[in-house]
Design a protein around this nucleic acid. Structure first.
Lengths: 202, 202
DNA sequence: TGTACATCAGTGAACGCGCGTTCACTGATGTAC
DNA sequence: TGTACATCAGTGAACGCGCGTTCACTGATGTAC
């Protein structure tokens, strides 16, 4: 990575953690620049305005999460041939990964920006929407594959079942932050895991 | 309600919907005052500063939610004697209530302020924490009562099960806002309902 | 290898604007006698 | 019932500050010949 891209990436790191702590509007370019050890005008060499920072930050967050899910469920699939057990292993790995974060998970950029969406243009809102829809599609596909091997014991809404993974993570993160209890998200994921097991195995 | 309290309540209504749309920092006293048809200094007759507005807004939100849960699960209990079926009815009523909101649920004040918690003092953060702990206690108690009549078929973390109601609502609201699909939260609640049924009845 | 020029990754000062908050004041309503 | 005073629910002007953004400029590094 070039020096330029390292600075840009540093700016995005700083911005992300500040936005998760205070929200986008309350995060000033001054404080980001200071933390990155450049001047305020140096910031504008990397981003033409604050909205472009938001877009870059969200795009990067979505890419990182996608990669995390890819790696994690690929690995789970290598550990077990059956799609249901691979899913159960994947959820356990996800719970462990979230537990291993020293100060708890810092929060989700999508949740934060969604709760401030009138600050952003339609492009940013569409980015968030597509991210959630992408995860719905990913997990819905996995659940459909599971249902072929293990017929569902009750009728359920498959889109909503696909959404459930994102929903449990988002809900768990809100509670984890509000409570200050580090293992909150992972406990919620373990309940989701129990639900999946009961749904397909009884 | 006195004219004074009506104005105060109007200010809180306006502030709540603005905060849910843009976040607290981006919501100016000027815009709140304008919408309430008073002057900026008129606002300060009702609240000594912006932080006091936040506290009042959050306190009122928690009281309203508590009352909603009280009414809803009291009514469910009147409809069925068995605590499990009362819970299942309560969750169905909750899902219907959320579906009946014309433009989708506007979002949760606790989630919004929790994702901006560095803006507020420790008192406000403690308020949010106690709200979540209160709901944990409420639902954990209900699940324990259910477990006496219907022994659990798998071992689960009861605190996390109590948290699940809040978590599903919070997660569903994030998705509902991000997607712009009105029935998202209620679908998640229906999955929670199926889980509860499977957990206690199989 | 030396030199001229271009590009890169910024700096520093200045801008106009909107923000939260204060303060002296005010007209309408309520209360005491 | 009339009047004096107090309280209520605000107003309007002013304040200092920090914000996002612009712009002319700069020293270090890269490239062409």
């Amino acid at each position: 990575m070039s020096a330029k891209q390292e600075t840009k990436s540093l700016i995005l790191d700083i911005a992300e953690s500040a936005v998760l702590a205070k929200g986008f509007e309350a995060t000033s370019i001054e404080e980001i620049a200071a933390a990155a050890e450049i001047s305020r005008s140096g910031f504008f060499y990397h981003f033409k305005d604050k909205n472009e920072l938001a877009r870059a930050m969200i795009e990067r967050y979505i890419e990182n999460e996608d990669k995390l899910y890819n790696d994690l469920f690929d690995r789970a699939r290598q550990l077990h041939d059956d799609p249901l057990h691979a899913m159960l292993i994947g959820l356990k790995l996800l719970a462990e990964l979230l537990d291993d974060m020293p100060n708890g998970h810092p929060g989700c950029v999508i949740a934060s920006t969604t709760y401030q969406d009138r600050l952003f243009d339609a492009g940013v809102r569409e980015l968030n929407r597509q991210a959630i829809l992408g995860w719905r599609k990913r997990f819905r596909g996995m659940f459909e594959e599971i249902a072929e091997a293990h017929p569902l014991r009750v009728e359920v809404n498959m889109d909503a079942l696909g959404d459930m993974v994102s929903s449990v993570v988002e809900g768990g993160l809100v509670l984890e932050r509000a409570l200050g209890e580090p293992r909150t998200v992972s406990s919620q994921i373990m309940h989701l895991r129990t639900y999946i097991r009961l749904l397909f195995l009884g």
